[in-house]
Write a protein that binds this DNA or RNA. Structure first.
Lengths: 140, 140
DNA sequence: TGTAAACTCTGTAGTAACTATAGAGTCAAG
DNA sequence: CTTGACTCTATAGTTACTACAGAGTTTACA
């Protein structure tokens, strides 16, 4: 099949497929006489694998690593575990950050006492540097 | 003060300050004879405002909008409220996504039954497309 | 058979918000 | 007067794509 059909069947865009090839996540396929990429169905599995990994927000370089591990199945699997664990930590800390952010934004939102004009609104005032306090605050 | 001191006092890097200038978030300062940027302390407040906004993960274009609102204080403040509300929604949906992700990753992590080699590990198998025991095994 | 449409090719540029150079110029101290 | 610290502009890199431009290839149909 040519790249267009592969795109439809895999759910990846044509550009993305070519990008993955360039980045070495999938191998370069054969070409027709007219230089068109020609795929067999095996690549569908590889793309599916990549999509599953991307859905877990693994980076392409992490995925590349996993792909290479797949190709040497006798490797100890600790590397896989470590990657997942590391990724879990990253996700956890991102969630924490976002939750703090969410709290801060809600706080901020309360500062508008239904003022009608920007200068009375309180929100912008809140974003300004703290007025006459000690200049060296504990910066986040 | 020159840009180096401003960087130290504001906590923004020199490149970031120049970047903000280029993006129109702060106005271009005067220059010395030798073409060095020369700042007064007012810009410290502006950088602090920007930093506060960035800490809330507002985009530079949102911040630019806020800055322009600051410059016309009689504007109705609804625009500010809307921006914060929109941003709250974005943050909320990102948190949800990440929490789902976190669950998925934990699930995945359980798939390794302390196998010692990659092909027995179960994690990589889990990332492969859902098969019904496809005849082409993982043996290589 | 001709041709128009649909498809594919490579290469480049754009995205967000910076960071990190290169190579040149400016300034202060010794 | 030279050394080092500082600054200048311009450019490239980061991530994972997306969106072209301009060319070539293939297919469908009249």
């Amino acid at each position: 099949m040519k790249i267009g059909e592969l795109a439809k069947r895999s759910g990846c865009s044509i550009q993305t497929i070519r990008y993955y090839e360039k980045e070495g996540l999938i191998s370069a396929p054969e070409r027709t006489e007219g230089n068109f990429r020609l795929y067999n169905s095996v690549v569908l599995e590889k793309l599916s694998f990549i999509k599953n990994c991307r859905a877990l927000d693994l980076t392409l370089s992490e995925i590349k690593h996993l792909v290479s591990l797949q190709n040497s199945p006798e490797t100890p699997c600790e590397a896989v575990n470590e990657m997942i664990d590391t990724h879990l930590l990253v996700v956890e800390s991102r969630i924490e950050d976002l939750q703090k952010l969410h709290g801060d934004l809600k706080q901020l939102r309360l500062k508008c006492g239904n003022a009608r004009s920007v200068d009375q609104c309180g929100i912008l005032g809140e974003l300004l540097p703290k007025p006459e306090r000690s200049p060296s605050g504990t910066r986040k």
